[in-house]
Simulated assay, not measured.
Amino acid sequence: MPTHAPTGPLITRGTLAEQLRHLGVKTGDILLAHSSLSSLGWVNGGAVAVVQGLLDALGPDGTLVVPTQSAQLSDPELWRAPPVPAAWWETVRATMPGYDPRTTPSRGVGVVPETVRTWPGALRSSHPQTSFAALGPRAAEITEGHALDCRLGEHSPLARLERLGARVLLLGAGYDSCTSFHLAEYRIPAPLVAVGRPGPGGWETVTEVSIDSARFDELGHDFERDRPVVRGRVGAAEARLFPVADAVAYAERWLALHRPREAGFEHPRA
């Protein structure tokens, strides 16, 4: 098999922790991390070393939180990457395994969140499609009570992170992955949508607020222009650090002005 020479920089657990501290991550922080492993460079130890470096920077009193969404537990009629034949839809719905926070893998959020999800002592919230996992002394407080009819709103870990003064770390990830912006969608006039998923008694449909990350990059650009956002580099990755509360408050105003709330907005599905 052909192999390719690694491209730098060389990143270790120690250099990652050091650079995170230089960026502004503090001991005892509550940190909601969105990450891209490939953007960092050549990481010795891969995702495990990244999680270790994050935990080192946070210290024993800090708490690391990551999105562990499972978009595969959704209506196959909406799948686009790839789609499945219409003739399969009913069978897929009838046989799709239900959500189990211990065994359901995350999807579409990267290898670092999946590594956190399986880390010893990690706790995971109960929503079958938009869960979060956390490590640290505030993990239970953040993940408990995630309402099954509230993907990313007032009864989700996002609202608790906001109240607890958590900060967002975008580590090689763009604003399109900033889940904090979704909390703002629950605070402005928004349509409701029917969301299909496997439930304890079989396939179920629940009514939810319509959420959509369209234009989040544009929203993030304006947020960074108008609000203090710490920017730097960790390895080869561009990194940003800012409070959850600032992102939510800015997004509430921005979305109300720039994005009409029309029926049909929906969270991307795998």
Rank of each mutant, 00 (worst) to 15 (best):
residue 148 L to S: 13
residue 133 A to R: 06
residue 151 R to S: 15
residue 116 V to T: 04
residue 151 R to V: 01
residue 124 R to G: 04
residue 152 L to R: 03
residue 110 G to H: 07
residue 157 P to H: 06
residue 112 V to E: 11
residue 158 L to Y: 07
residue 112 V to Q: 13
residue 132 F to M: 02
residue 151 R to C: 12
residue 132 F to C: 07
residue 123 L to F: 06
residue 128 P to R: 02
residue 157 P to W: 03
residue 155 H to R: 15
residue 134 A to D: 06
residue 128 P to C: 06
residue 113 P to T: 06
residue 158 L to A: 10
residue 132 F to V: 05
residue 113 P to G: 04
residue 137 P to I: 06
residue 155 H to F: 13
residue 159 A to R: 15
residue 152 L to I: 10
residue 136 G to N: 08
residue 160 R to D: 08
residue 112 V to W: 10
residue 125 S to G: 09
residue 137 P to S: 02
residue 111 V to T: 15
residue 112 V to N: 13
residue 148 L to Y: 03
residue 130 T to Q: 14
residue 121 G to L: 07
residue 133 A to K: 05
residue 154 E to N: 14
residue 111 V to L: 14
residue 126 S to Y: 00
residue 124 R to W: 12
residue 139 A to R: 00
residue 158 L to H: 05
residue 160 R to T: 13
residue 124 R to Q: 02
residue 155 H to K: 15
residue 126 S to L: 15
residue 117 R to W: 03
residue 139 A to T: 03
residue 131 S to N: 06
residue 112 V to L: 11
residue 148 L to D: 11
residue 128 P to L: 02
residue 153 G to K: 04
residue 122 A to S: 14
residue 129 Q to V: 14
residue 125 S to H: 07
residue 157 P to V: 04
residue 115 T to H: 13
residue 157 P to N: 06
residue 154 E to W: 12
residue 130 T to G: 14
residue 154 E to A: 15
residue 157 P to L: 04
residue 143 T to K: 00
residue 156 S to N: 08
residue 115 T to P: 13
residue 140 A to F: 12
residue 152 L to H: 01
